[in-house]
Simulated scan of single mutants.
Amino acid sequence: MTKLRKGYCVNNEVHEYLMKIKKENNLSSVSLALEMVVKEHEKRSRIKTEDTAKLMAKEIGKVLRDDISKFKLSASETDKNVQILIEMINGHLIKEGIGKIVTTTGLTTEISMESPALKIAKEEVKKRLYRNKIMKENKINE
């Protein structure tokens, strides 16, 4: 590696520190002491950056973990409720002896229809989701 010759002005305190580094490390010149100090500074700066990145990753992980836990809980509760509804509807269909049903798409039964009750239920769920979204946004903005 080629070396550049440059002239730098430092105060007496810095010069004494470089002389101390030179002596402690058995270096042949103050230039080598200065190089050593700069390399050490660069190494420590890199370590600080890495530590900061690790700390940020850990904190972001905590926040995401909390959010994921909430989503898991919500999904679990929803799944449970859907399974209960399926069981109740199935029981009702068996009790009433209903073999064929009309679907909303008509893909499997060739007949398609939406009952007024289904339309009301869809609209209610749509309103509920909208209200929950607004409440969540308000909570975030507080």
Rank of each mutant, 00 (worst) to 15 (best):
I47M: 04
K6R: 14
V125K: 14
T2M: 08
Y8D: 03
H92Q: 05
E16D: 14
F71Y: 12
S112L: 02
K80D: 11
M19T: 06
E59C: 06
C9H: 06
I120Q: 12
I140R: 08
G97A: 00
A33T: 03
K126I: 12
L107P: 00
A53E: 11
R46T: 10
D67A: 12
L34S: 09
M88W: 15
K70Y: 15
N26H: 07
T2H: 03
V10E: 04
V125T: 09
K43Q: 08
I84E: 15
R5H: 10
S28C: 07
I89F: 04
T103H: 00
E16N: 11
K54C: 05
E137Q: 07
A75C: 03
S29T: 14
S29H: 03
K136D: 02
N12C: 09
H15W: 02
G61W: 09
S112P: 01
K127Y: 06
R44P: 00
S29L: 00
I89R: 10
T108G: 01
E40V: 05
M36T: 05
G7F: 13
K119T: 13
K43N: 01
M113A: 05
M56R: 09
V125W: 13
K80N: 12
I86D: 04
I21E: 11
T2E: 09
E142Q: 06
M113R: 04
M36I: 13
K122Y: 03
M135S: 12
I134M: 06
N12W: 14
L55Q: 11
S45P: 01
V30M: 03
K95A: 12
E13L: 06
M135K: 15
K127I: 15
N12T: 13
E123S: 05
R131H: 07
S74Y: 15
K3Y: 13
